[in-house]
Design a protein around this nucleic acid. Sequence first.
DNA 1: GATGAATGAGATTTCATTCAT
DNA 2: TATGAATGAAATCTCATTCAT
Lengths: 206, 206, 206, 206
Amino acid sequence: MPAQQRDLRPQGRKTVGQLLDAAVSVLAAMGYQAARVEDIVRAAKTSHGTFYLYFANKEDLLRSLAQECSEDMNRLADQLGPVGRGDDGLAELRAWILDFSNTYQRHAPVIRAWSEQQVQGPEMEELGLQAFDQITSRLVARLEVVARSASAAEPEKAAVALLALLERFSYFRISRRLYADTDEWLDTLAVMVHCGFFGGGRPPRR
Amino acid sequence: MPAQQRDLRPQGRKTVGQLLDAAVSVLAAMGYQAARVEDIVRAAKTSHGTFYLYFANKEDLLRSLAQECSEDMNRLADQLGPVGRGDDGLAELRAWILDFSNTYQRHAPVIRAWSEQQVQGPEMEELGLQAFDQITSRLVARLEVVARSASAAEPEKAAVALLALLERFSYFRISRRLYADTDEWLDTLAVMVHCGFFGGGRPPRR
Amino acid sequence: MPAQQRDLRPQGRKTVGQLLDAAVSVLAAMGYQAARVEDIVRAAKTSHGTFYLYFANKEDLLRSLAQECSEDMNRLADQLGPVGRGDDGLAELRAWILDFSNTYQRHAPVIRAWSEQQVQGPEMEELGLQAFDQITSRLVARLEVVARSASAAEPEKAAVALLALLERFSYFRISRRLYADTDEWLDTLAVMVHCGFFGGGRPPRR
Amino acid sequence: MPAQQRDLRPQGRKTVGQLLDAAVSVLAAMGYQAARVEDIVRAAKTSHGTFYLYFANKEDLLRSLAQECSEDMNRLADQLGPVGRGDDGLAELRAWILDFSNTYQRHAPVIRAWSEQQVQGPEMEELGLQAFDQITSRLVARLEVVARSASAAEPEKAAVALLALLERFSYFRISRRLYADTDEWLDTLAVMVHCGFFGGGRPPRR
DNA sequence: GATGAATGAGATTTCATTCAT
DNA sequence: TATGAATGAAATCTCATTCAT
């Protein structure tokens, strides 16, 4: 079984890296289902056989990518500090949204595969839910600080809504519509989120 | 090729209906790419041959569904009246969001296929963009009424963001999380959107 | 899952038959491992896809053949009546050995696959052992009649040895050596077995 | 191609030994066709590259094993002395059968590959037939001594039958049935063969 | 109108063998 | 001498589409 990377020498490690990178671009461009192993292999400038030397099959590759993604997402969650109502909070938020969007960009294919639930298997499911929960609960924590007064929404639900908003924004950003304008979009989003979710633009809580 | 359904006797119409319904559930469950004609045909309790009696090919089926979807979406856009800052506006908004979400539910597979890109010919592309524009521009019109004062965002960008939010919400609603609680979710969302996008909860513009 | 034959119309039944027949000759000629699906399909004058319409894979085909084989073997066991020490017994035995050998000939590939234990799976194992036991215990029953006096061997062990002898004989008969001479071989074997296992050529038991 | 092992340093000789031993167990377990070089190499705790350092290819390995087997078989043939009708003959026979069976055990995979045909080139064929003839003709010689009177069978045919019996017995012994009981089995077989083929248990020829 | 059967192009996967270190 | 990495030809398997009844 040539599945997971065993120890691997530098050479092998390099090849695995090429394959993973190639997979990211190819999956981003065509989606998981449509991408053929051949496409990935060609992009990685390696051979068909080599692919199966490091991954049991296409799904196994996705699992590897999901692992990476999950780690990055958890890191992202840790990075969001408290978001105050003032301009500092706005700036903090804007930076984090950009970080989120960039991370999403790298992992878009995995996230898409997750949400399209096309690749089953409990392990995948597990990873996806865990990443989702991790980031959601961090958002909840940050939203609770500003509490009721800022919004009628319960923090749990607001967090999910916020995540949805960010995800779609990031998706649109790469998918087709919002090529340019990234800065303006970020401004718009940051203000909107700051104001709608974090009580931005109102007097600080006493 | 016996493509589009021209005039059909009742029997034929029934069969087409079965196929379309089956397609909706199967595509919702597996996505367009992963769904095999066999899956659809089995769900419709009919045969392989019959499928090609009514559709030129798999893509043609998707086109049919997209047609339906596009119509419903346009109708939806027409339904959104002005959204005032008061409780009436909130109620109006809430009702519309529910309508949106239900419509999405039926058409989720098509919308997913639209955003998956890579699947479709120009005709599909056309239908998708048109539906998207239709609904976006109606949102823009409604947002413009409340204008600058309510939000720092330009209406065009805010409309896209709002649509994204609604789409993801609807998606989450059917995909796995948020089964129950629909009412509470609607309340939360309505308030959030009303407040964040339509200046809800502030004094009416002079 | 296109595995086992569901109901099947005449046409389909015919095709399955062609495939099974083709498989028998091809497997006999090349052995299970070496035979490619392509070989079988070509011999059956049908297409690659058709094969997978009726069998999940090569192993599934072998399972089908094993089923047939198992049935024939059981029938064979039932056919062996008592074997007396006189010329009648000899004739009876000779006829049965021929029957055995012919049956073996048809099912040689399956039996070989069984004994080479190359295709695992409990179901296969089960079928093989059951056929083996069935025929062994019938032999034991027949050998017990002539009992100790005829041979020093315990009937159980003698039965296994006899079966081994018959199997190898049948195998050699088709494999390469004993093309011609079948009649003489049968005479030789029958006498040998009659004498060595059934007390042939000695005075009947009182 | 670094085919045959010419002169080897101790290290190299050890590695070849590991490979051959590993091959014996792996081939015994899976058969020649099904065994992958990878399996053998892993069992030998060495690497892919090393394999091809000592053998030109998979078939070359089999050839090496066949060489060994052929030699042992010839030695075995030489070892069978005259088999008298008395208890001495029985003991002689019993010992030889055990020897045969043990030798077979070591070489089972090769013998199986021989009979599987379709695997080998002319050299293999040659080796196999030679070994077979060698041992058969020795058996014929021994059987002729007891001649007609003991059995109605012609010695040539009886020899083949005897060989078949011994081969299958040895095969069953390792394959799955008959684990324990070796001694009893030997007793049974020896008596049976002595009596059925060598006129054992009857008055010596005058 | 309806259906099961058939097809074959194309995707996935395996594995003996060669290569570079 | 030894090894992990790489390769590609060949095998297995899938599935949208066409066919015959």
